[in-house]
């Protein structure tokens, strides 16, 4: 049993994109705020803060997770992946990110980090996705710029490319 007192900060440790991290948090601190404020990982965006918009979606132990509906204390010892972990290196975008760029699947970009995490997870489990499946997944995200159509296009294109990984269609 671990009991964390409300008026103190407590150490929280987990693995973030493969690297061990540690910082302090009050029990009430949300994972979204912990990532951004304590760890400086500001790729994860905070929209509605009650689980509706999907902008803050990350992956915790292989599960899609609203980081605004999760306490930092809850994920102690877990493995967390955020949008910062998608690019293979600092100067190169991942396949899905390249497809987003080609298809104009983002405009203001506020919702994009969450959508990328959902799609990255989904394409990993469904290598041959249907448009209906992607639409169902995207119902958990709000995008007010694109109208979703370019996002669906990008996801299908990325899936096709991941199925035949030799072709590189962009230097981005």
């Amino acid at each position: 049993m671990t009991r964390l007192n409300s008026n103190a900060r407590h150490a929280v440790r987990f693995t973030l994109n493969g690297k061990p991290v540690e910082a302090e948090a009050e029990p009430r601190m949300l994972l979204s705020d912990f990532l951004r404020h304590q760890l400086g990982a500001t790729g994860t965006h905070v929209g509605c803060e009650h689980g509706v918009c999907g902008a803050c979606t990350v992956i915790v132990d292989g599960m899609l997770t609203r980081s605004c509906l999760t306490l930092a204390a809850q994920v102690d010892g877990c493995e967390i992946r955020t949008v910062e972990g998608l690019a293979p290196s600092a100067d190169r975008l991942g396949v899905l990110q390249q497809a987003f760029r080609r298809n104009h699947a983002l405009q203001c970009g506020f919702c994009t980090a969450g959508i990328l995490m959902s799609l990255d997870h989904y394409l990993g489990e469904n290598p041959a996705p249907t448009e209906a499946g992607i639409r169902d997944l995207l119902s958990g995200h709000l995008c007010r710029c694109t109208g979703y159509t370019p996002i669906i296009q990008a996801a299908l294109e990325a899936a096709a490319q991941l199925a035949s990984p030799t072709k590189e269609t962009s230097d981005a």
Partner: peptide, 10 residues
């Protein structure tokens, strides 16, 4: 939109 303070017991 942040929770009020509470103790957390795992």
């Amino acid at each position: 939109m942040k929770p009020a303070a509470f103790d957390y017991l795992r």
